[in-house]
Nucleic acid binder design. Structure first.
Length: 658
DNA sequence: CTAGGGTTAG
């Protein structure tokens, strides 16, 4: 219906030609492809008094999705002397969606508020658009506001709206409980609802909740789709739950879940981070369509496992394949160089970012470089690098540097940087831990005690490091000195036996890294109480000879690292082809005739997460036991359809790297 | 005009 405006009433016009002109303009709109053409049509429409036509905006946003075009279009459409109440929800929806899609989330929210302010009633399409923007902004209060409006307008039973609410809350800091509440109160659920909720848990590192919810989904007989599988896989990756991940892959095969690129990437990422590099690489090679993310996943996977050279050659192969590197792949690449001591290569790649690809290095890239130099022992150069950085170094960079100072004996330098850091950020506990460790290394025990006291006064507590291990599809978690387990006596006996065998093989306990004011013998004892050793001992007790043992660490300077240990057990004789970490908790000269290099410290996963909550501890049953998997479990959940399912090859020795 | 997903320095 076309109502003539006041002006038109005063000056009668012939309606018919005008309608024809309008039709003409609209048909022009359908076919126009360039912004300038569009602008011409728009000025034509303006002359006809049709500036409110939402088609123009739709066309603007589809012709050119650049911000400029959208700004231009919205400034044309929302001129200040207009009465906005005459606009409809569709127009606002288009603007909100356009801004949301171009990552201008705050502007999207602004238009949503403008809409409300002017009494334009949102419709059921408005909320998914605006909630998506809320999710990206991540502000809980905003999510709550929109939620309130959803209830007021009465769309709280709409499944699309509900799903986006779950998602938005899941993305807002502290909103996961609200997300679950919305989820629980939804009248019905589809696979999107489940994926949104599982994905919310997975994103926060609440991975056992994520996996538990997936189980409930199966009990509820909702068929998971490829997105659901991606979220479950990322939870597996996070838990280091390789067996569970394998199960998910076989489920995908069995249930013929369509394999999107994202899903393939998730599977590859899971294998890579959980330690089955060969499998990851295999699947990667078989992928028909590889995106930059696929390459990045596999490059990062290689880097984690110490295959720096392979990571570098994959990168070169990627370029030959015609893919243009992005900033993310450079993070993986430089950290690959860093973990493999390829200092010159790392420098070269870092410089090539801007020179070769026009990518301005971000703080992460500078961080990688600081790590690269630090690990190589070039502490002074690293400091120099930091001081010359064009952007303000962040806490991570300083802490990297401090850690380097500690391990390369630059204790005074480390001490002064740490003190500065504490002055800037007095409530961050890891700074205190760093300082306390530096004092310990300097044998300043009183100062160390004082730091601990300060921390206590401020109510800070160190999150204890733990080690998890997946056995018979259950996950067991150990902390240092753990005696909670029923088998703890046997476990400690096994630790002793491991120690004897390792010493016989040439292991020297690195007691200098035990930062306690105790004598050497007690330090060895402290080493033997490490959660890693307890987990390994437990695994040795519970598994047949030749079983690869994989351990998962909950944190390492807030990073989670996944370690893989391959163990050979000869009757009662342990022959550990081991290992370990930058912290050098263990070191073992391998048995003669066998290649060294048996263990890698692997996997850095996500940082900005809530600290990992214990999955479950010490033999208590866990939510991911396949016996409890409901429907899926009835169908032999571990029937692996893939032919290369060789979890436990018969050979006794498993070598890594080399 | 509507929703959920894969890669990211310590």
């Amino acid at each position: 219906m076309h109502f003539p405006s006041k002006a038109n009433l005063l000056r009668p016009v012939n309606i018919a030609p005008k309608r024809a002109a309008e039709q003409h303009c609209l048909s022009l709109l359908q076919t126009c492809t360039s912004l300038s053409h569009l602008t011409q049509i728009h000025s034509l429409l303006l002359k006809l008094g049709l500036q409110h036509n939402p088609l123009v905006l739709t066309k603007f946003t589809s012709t050119s999705s650049t911000l400029n075009a959208i700004h231009y279009a919205s400034s044309l459409l929302f001129s200040s002397n207009d009465n906005i109440t005459h606009y409809d929800a569709f127009l606002f929806n288009t603007v909100i969606r356009a801004y949301s899609q171009t990552s201008s989330h705050s502007t999207a929210v602004y238009y949503y508020k403008l809409m409300l302010k002017n009494g334009v009633l949102p419709n059921k399409f408005t909320y998914p658009f605006v909630l998506k923007a809320c999710a990206c902004v991540g502000r809980l209060s905003l999510g709550e506001q929109v939620h309130g409006s959803v209830i007021k307008v009465g769309f709280d039973n709409d499944i699309h709206v509900g799903n986006t609410l779950v998602h938005a809350y899941g993305c807002c800091g502290g909103g996961i409980g609200f997300a679950r509440k919305v989820f629980d109160e939804m009248p019905e659920w589809d696979s999107v609802s489940w994926s949104a909720m599982i994905g919310g848990y997975a994103r926060l590192g609440m991975s056992s909740e994520a996996v538990g919810l997936f189980r409930e989904m199966q009990v509820a007989r909702v068929r998971p789709d490829e997105v659901t599988m991606v979220t479950v896989l990322s939870a597996c990756t996070d838990l280091g739950a390789l067996e569970l991940g394998r199960w998910v892959e076989s489920y995908i095969e069995r249930e013929k879940v369509p394999k999107s690129v994202e899903l393939c990437n998730a599977v590859i990422g899971m294998y890579a981070k959980c330690g089955d590099v060969d499998k990851a690489l295999n699947l990667f090679r078989k992928m028909s369509e590889k995106t930059i993310v696929s390459w990045t996943s596999v490059i990062v996977g290689m880097a984690m496992h110490g295959h720096g050279l392979e990571a570098v050659s994959l990168f070169e192969e990627m370029k030959e394949d015609g893919l243009v590197p992005d900033d993310v792949v450079f993070i993986g690449l430089i950290s690959a160089c860093s973990h493999s001591g390829l200092v010159e290569e790392g420098r070269r790649y870092f410089n090539s970012m801007l020179e070769g690809f026009g990518i301005v290095p971000k703080i992460e890239h500078y961080g990688c470089m600081v790590d690269l130099l630090s690990r190589a022992g070039l502490v002074k150069e690293a400091l120099d690098f930091v001081q010359k950085m064009p952007i303000e170094p962040n806490q991570i960079i300083w802490r990297t540097l401090i850690a380097a100072c500690r391990s390369h004996g630059e204790l005074n330098l480390g001490e002064s940087i740490t003190k500065q850091l504490i002055r800037n950020e007095p409530m961050h506990e890891s700074n205190y831990i760093l300082l306390s460790n530096i004092y310990a290394k300097k044998s300043h025990w009183e100062k160390k005690t004082k730091i601990r006291e300060v921390m206590e006064k401020k109510g800070m507590r160190k999150i204890p490091g733990s080690t998890m291990i997946e056995l018979d599809n259950e996950i067991y978690e150990f902390v240092a000195g753990d005696k909670m387990h029923n088998l703890y006596k046997e476990i400690y006996e096994m630790v002793d036996e491991m120690g004897r065998e390792m010493k016989r093989a040439g292991y020297l306990p690195t007691t200098s890294e035990v930062l306690l004011d105790i004598d050497e013998e007690d330090k060895e004892d402290a080493l033997n109480r490490h959660s890693e050793k307890l987990a390994i001992a437990f695994a040795l007790l519970k598994t047949p000879p030749g079983t690869p043992i994989r351990i998962v660490k909950n944190l390492r300077n807030q990073a989670r690292r996944i370690g893989i240990i391959k163990v050979k057990l000869q009757v009662q004789h342990l022959c550990l082809n081991l290992y370990w970490d930058h912290g050098e908790l263990l070191r073992c000269v391998p048995p003669s005739g066998e290649a060294p290099n048996c263990l890698r410290v692997l996997g850095v996963s996500r940082y900005d997460r809530v600290p990992n909550r214990p999955v479950f501890r010490n033999g208590q049953s866990c939510s991911i036991s396949p016996k409890e998997w409901g429907i899926a479990a009835e169908k032999d959940p571990f029937a692996c359809s893939s032919s290369d399912d060789k979890a436990c090859p018969p050979s006794n020795v498993f070598l890594f790297g080399a």
